[in-house]
Computed example of a mutant assay.
Amino acid sequence: MKRTLPALLVCASLLVVAGPPAVAVAPSPVSRAVAEPVSYAVSGLVPGVPRETPGRAPARGTQRHIEYVPQSEVVHHGTRSVACSRSTGPYQRQTERYLRREVDGRQSVGDCRAIRRFQQAHRIVPASGFAGSVTGAMVRLMRAKKDPNRAGHCPDRRERTVCVDLNRQLLWVQQDGRVIFDPVAIRSGAPTMETRTGTYRIYLRHRRHISNLYHTPMPFAQFFDRGEALHAVYDDIYQGPGSHGCVNLTWTDAQKLWDLLKKQDIVYVWGRKPGV
């Protein structure tokens, strides 16, 4: 796929701007063929969840991840408590397995309570016990903590190697067979703007980069392939269709990665983002 140079230099998040203000409708995270859509509560409508301020890093420990929930369970402004979901989410089985519940793929009162505790511990809102795409992504991240390269997809080198797993939407850094930067969540390219796979080296670092075309901030930008970069975003890493090809990280993760990496470090990208 050919891209113009200006477009390559702009890899900030694509934001959904159409639709009603209270609910944004999205296709199911499991399959495009699923007829019933799921929705999510916008962050500004969930009690206790501040809106992100463009151009300003979120305060430490305040960022929340907005879960996709059924239309009937969308949390509305002013709700003081969140009811326990009776619905079975698309990532029910994966979550049951991780939480060591009976893996039957059916929501129960016990399942819901366990999932709610997991969501609360990882700042997922609404913590209703519905195992949606964000809960599933958090489960994948936690399962990867012990041994992210268990499948051996990322090459073991003596040099620092940034491993970008598009399949699981995860990133970590390893060297000499040892993980030196634990796996974190990422957001890669949106459909038609997928992050390119291959082996690259970081060739440019710009702490306060501003994209040329859209004048969008790209904090802690570390470019590795014709304009594609590792960089921070201000919004929730789990929301939106994706970037213009860059690898998006949370502000905190991008800052830590900036402190660790240098020019000429290797970036290895493989896989395919789910749903593209």
Results as ranks from 00 to 15, higher is better:
W270K: 06
C112P: 03
G105S: 10
H153D: 14
A190K: 07
D236W: 08
G152L: 02
G110S: 12
E102Q: 13
D265N: 15
Q175L: 00
L9Q: 12
M218Y: 01
V46N: 03
R86I: 08
T4D: 05
R60C: 03
K263M: 11
R178F: 02
V184K: 07
L45V: 00
W251L: 06
R272E: 15
G177M: 08
P90Y: 03
D111I: 04
A26H: 12
A57C: 06
R56S: 08
D176A: 15
S43I: 11
S243L: 02
L99E: 13
T252V: 14
A114I: 09
V69N: 09
A57S: 11
T161M: 11
R178D: 08
I180F: 04
L257F: 01
W258H: 11
G189P: 05
K146N: 11
D235V: 12
V17P: 01
V164D: 03
A41G: 14
R205T: 11
L230T: 07
G189C: 07
D253P: 07
P20Q: 15
V10L: 01
T79H: 05
S243V: 04
P21G: 09
P50I: 05
L257R: 07
R106F: 02
Y200R: 08
M218L: 15
Q107D: 10
T216G: 00
A18S: 14
P20S: 13
F223M: 13
G177D: 06
P70M: 09
Q71R: 14
D104K: 03
I124Q: 02
A151E: 15
V139T: 05
T250Y: 04
L15S: 13
Q107C: 15
H244S: 11
V34S: 01
T95R: 00
K273C: 01
D147Q: 05
R207Q: 12
D165C: 05
E36W: 03
D265Y: 10
E96A: 14
A41Q: 12
V233H: 01
K273V: 15
E52P: 08
V173T: 09
S43A: 10
Q120P: 01
G152T: 09
S128C: 12
E159P: 14
H65C: 08
M142L: 15
V74M: 05
A151R: 08
T4E: 04
P155W: 00
H153E: 12
H231I: 11
A22Q: 13
R205P: 00
A59D: 04
R101W: 06
M193L: 14
V103G: 02
E228N: 12
Y91L: 14
